[in-house]
Design a protein around this nucleic acid. Structure first.
Lengths: 158, 158
DNA sequence: CTATCCAACGCAATTTTCATGCACACACCC
DNA sequence: GGGTGTGTGCATGAAAATTGCGTTGGATAG
């Protein structure tokens, strides 16, 4: 199933990506399309899976989550089961916001958000390092976040 | 101004963080508080800045954004202006989802999302490397994303 | 122990927003 | 030229959010 999006769809996505609290009427006024059409197009986009869901974007500072860190994990040449266990574990850890397998010298990169450095240390020493599969862990702490919008770049063409 | 949150607030935040499309009535049923109170508490949380905004979470695959990369940037010992220019530039680049200044041997980590490897190469060679301040760039590509929910870990206490 | 106060609560009424049936317009194909 | 299909705006009915209001419960002071 091919998904065809026109420029109205892109405009709607671009707006909703920044502010999903706008009413269809407000979106309507910004892009010059009736509110009912906005509604129908949104339904389509949701059904097609282009819009995965709607989320509240919380302020980490206000919640006492002051430390963001990127942790590079290297796995040893271990059993498939241990590696699988590592992935399951990491996926289930609430402090881990993102986890990717990477090309290059590091196998995994984890984005971790915690209240303070002590909590980071706990996560690394108690949760990550004890795992069989883990050979090495290198963490780097974000001192200042310049940008963290997780806004996808929508191609302007079409 | 100290922000005091009780367990109802945490429950609301936890739910909205996963699904902001739920009605107050539905949230009400899940946590045992009337819909009108959910509404009032949400207003308070929004006003206090705990809830920053509501966003549509888009599917990168469906939009042809197939490549996620983490790029570590090292700055040379250059002028303050060049460094500032770098930060401005990076903040304005749509492909850059996140940008953090880091502790350790790398000055910045950028999370970049692009359609393909060619586009990544373009970003690095045309946008990043030509900058005065930039000394070195090392990129690592995400082969598989295990987790990318950007869900903050809300402390269960209180 | 009781009176008072204040914040939080639920209910119900109001207002806003959403969803959909319907008729029309435009483009494309036969 | 006529028919078909997709997309559109308008208007209506349904659903949801918001808010006024009276009440409740817990803390504090007398």
């Amino acid at each position: 199933m091919k998904i065809a999006l026109d420029s109205f769809d892109y405009k709607i996505l671009g707006i909703l990506q920044d502010n999903a609290a706008l009413t269809n009427q407000e979106i309507s006024e910004r892009i010059g399309l009736s509110a009912s059409q906005i509604s129908r197009r949104r339904q389509k986009l949701e059904q097609e899976g282009v819009i995965r869901r709607y989320r509240a974007d919380l302020n980490p500072q206000a919640l006492g989550l002051l430390v963001t860190a990127y942790v590079g994990v290297t796995l040893g040449a271990h059993s498939r089961e241990n590696a699988a266990r590592f992935r399951t574990m990491v996926t289930a850890m609430p402090e881990v916001q993102e986890a990717h397998t990477m090309t290059g010298d590091v196998d995994y990169i984890l984005k971790i958000v915690v209240p303070d450095l002590q909590a980071l240390s706990r996560v690394i020493n108690d949760d990550l390092l004890p795992q069989e599969a883990v050979q090495n862990v290198r963490s780097s702490i974000a001192m200042e976040t310049l940008k963290d919008e997780n806004r996808l770049p929508l191609r302007s063409t079409a």
